Amino acid sequence: MEFKLFLNEVDELKAFMLTNSWDYHIHKNMKEETVQLLVEEGYYQNGRETYWIIDNNLKIGLICIEDIEDSIVSFDLRLDATYRGQGYGHYALRWLQQYLFGEKNKIRIEGYTRADNLSMRKCFTKAGFVKEGYLRNAWENADGSVTDSVLYSAIQSDWQNKTTTAIKLDDLAF
């Protein structure tokens, strides 16, 4: 598996985004004009780095790293439906830590997912991310519904020391 910087391959991006269903993202089914508008507005590049996830010369996923100039970043991970549930997400999160902590010297990576996205929640945990928060009514969907979300993070010092720092969520009653 390898990761290659998105270089404005618009037709491939459209094919990827339009042929998959994104059940746990705001827009479950992307429209071509939406993807085109995002590209034209620089969504995949301005203040972000976007990488194709490639396996056997096939583009099977996309990671969009947000706030790339900050020391704390978040990201969006999408895998082609054919490749979900096969360990690619875990591998992508491990690569993300290696790249952001090892090469870019970031101090923290945050990831949010809908509370009902159990596969992603397991993926975060397996990749060494720590569940830091359960956010009630924090994820707005395109159909107007609102769901809970869960916050996970990885920090550079844990990654460097191969450890997990316990969170202090319940150290005080308030």
Rank of each mutant, 00 (worst) to 15 (best):
M1R: 01
F6C: 00
N8M: 10
V10A: 07
L13D: 12
A15R: 12
S21V: 06
S21M: 01
W22R: 00
H25Q: 09
I26W: 05
H27V: 08
E32L: 05
E33I: 12
T34S: 09
V35N: 02
V35C: 01
Q36E: 14
V39W: 01
G42E: 04
Q45N: 05
E49Q: 08
W52R: 01
W52N: 02
I53N: 00
I53K: 00
I54W: 02
E66L: 07
D67T: 06
D70S: 09
D70W: 00
L77E: 06
L77H: 11
Y83V: 03
G85V: 10
G85E: 12
L93F: 05
R94T: 15
Q98H: 15
Q98T: 13
Q98S: 14
F101P: 03
E103K: 15
K104H: 10
N105D: 15
I107D: 12
G111I: 08
Y112M: 04
R114S: 05
A115F: 13
L118H: 09
K122G: 02
K126Q: 12
G128F: 11
V130G: 09
N137S: 15
A138V: 00
A142S: 07
A142E: 08
V146F: 01
T147C: 06
Y152Q: 00
A154E: 04
Q160F: 12
K162D: 14
A166C: 07
D171Q: 14
